[in-house]
Simulated assay, not measured.
Amino acid sequence: MGVFHHFELGRRRLFVTLAAILVPIAVACSGDPSQAQTDPLPSWNDTAPKAAIVAFVEKVTTENTPDFVPEPERIAVFDNDGTLWVEHPMYTQLAFALDRVKAEAPSHPEWKDTQPFKAVLEGDMKTLAASGEKGLIELIMTTHSGMTSDEFQKVVADWLATARDPHFKRPYIELVYQPMLELLAYLRANGFKTFIVSGGGIEFMRPWSEQVYGVPPEQVVGSSIKTQFEMRDGMPTLFRLPQVNFIDDKSGKPVGINEHIGRRPIAAFGNSDGDLEMLQWTTMTGGSVRFAMLIHHTDAEREYAYDRDTEFGRLDEALDAAAINKWTVVDMKADWKEIFPKK
């Protein structure tokens, strides 16, 4: 009972936090009753991206027209980091991994002299960044393995219930984009099934995706580490191993979509070069009307401004591809009335 009891306590604490957040989100989404009936996207300015979204949805949902798409085929995929929630100054899951290193350090005295753990413990982000992908993968493998899937979900739930973004001083699960919450709801109201397709860990996102985004865990596609079935104390468990299983980023995203969803999406939403292949896979095909959107971070005052010159969420090749392929690009500063749900 021990592991599952503690896991349930962690889930309850997370759900209490989520409830406190989601009520104001629901209010923010509804706004004035008369407006809610006429405008499904109240946090979007009346600019070209909003018009493009509405026009696309109307096309694919209008029966007896050439562009009509039956509901089972209305699949929309969303990146997570930088598309649905904040990814600067670092990915939220990386912040989680860094906190895990600090929490576990007393049991690993050798980390004081071993990179990249030494850099984390000393707050040396320059050295950590210099360790590159290899160093970051080592951090993730070490801090995300050596436990059962249930134990890992409890660790994630506990961390999200207490962790705060250092810049906004708010829980990470509050730093979701209000316009994108409205977009998810709008698509689902029009017969779409919405999926998260992220480079982030699939088991890092699944414990909270439904409560925060309305996306159930079975509709989350992400990177994963290997797990194996074991009987522990007479109980069947899935044990997490320090080995990469699948990286759901860049060219891995179409592969993940094919393996987990089994249908090619008709709409895709991203914000970085890591989403390029997903947008290409969605739109560069014959048949029905297709839609692709990039979120361009241009609002340094309300959030962050970055694109081609950043380590996290670089938007370079995909931005050029958007112009060529006529994908919709959201200018956060110009196109969004609100960034985050109101407190």
Rank of each mutant, 00 (worst) to 15 (best):
D39C: 14
I25S: 14
P33C: 12
W44Y: 06
I53N: 04
N64W: 10
P33L: 13
L18H: 04
A52L: 05
A26C: 08
P42V: 03
G31A: 06
D67F: 03
K50H: 03
A26S: 10
V27I: 11
T38E: 10
Q35S: 13
A26R: 08
T17D: 10
R12I: 06
V54C: 06
T38N: 09
A26N: 07
Q37S: 15
V60R: 03
R11F: 06
P49Q: 02
T61W: 14
L41A: 08
T62R: 15
L41V: 03
D46H: 14
A52G: 03
R13T: 10
N64C: 12
T65K: 13
V60H: 05
L22E: 03
L41P: 01
P33H: 09
T62L: 15
V60L: 04
D39H: 09
P66A: 12
F56K: 01
Q37V: 11
R13D: 13
F68S: 07
D67H: 10
S43I: 00
V27W: 07
D67M: 02
S43E: 03
T17I: 08
Q35L: 11
I21S: 15
W44K: 03
I21E: 13
T65C: 13
T61P: 06
K59Q: 10
L14C: 02
D32N: 15
V60C: 10
I25Y: 02
D32V: 07
T17N: 13
R11Y: 06
P24C: 04
V54G: 04
V16M: 07
V69R: 05
T17A: 15
V54E: 05
P40C: 12
N45F: 02
F56M: 02
I25G: 12
P24V: 00
F15K: 06
L18N: 07
S34F: 07
G31S: 07
A28C: 09
D39N: 15
K59G: 04
D67I: 00
P49K: 03
L14D: 00
D39G: 13
R11D: 10
I53H: 05
V57L: 09
T17L: 15
T38Y: 03
T38C: 11
N64E: 14
G10Y: 01
A52K: 09
A20F: 01
A19E: 02
L14K: 00
A55R: 14
A28P: 02
K50N: 02
A28Y: 00
C29Y: 00
L22H: 04
F15L: 08
A26Q: 07
S30P: 00
F56A: 01
A55H: 12
V57D: 04
I53M: 09
A20G: 12
C29Q: 14
E58N: 11
I25P: 00
S34G: 10
K59F: 01
R13F: 07
D67Y: 05
S34A: 14
T38G: 10
N45E: 08
K50G: 02
L18I: 04
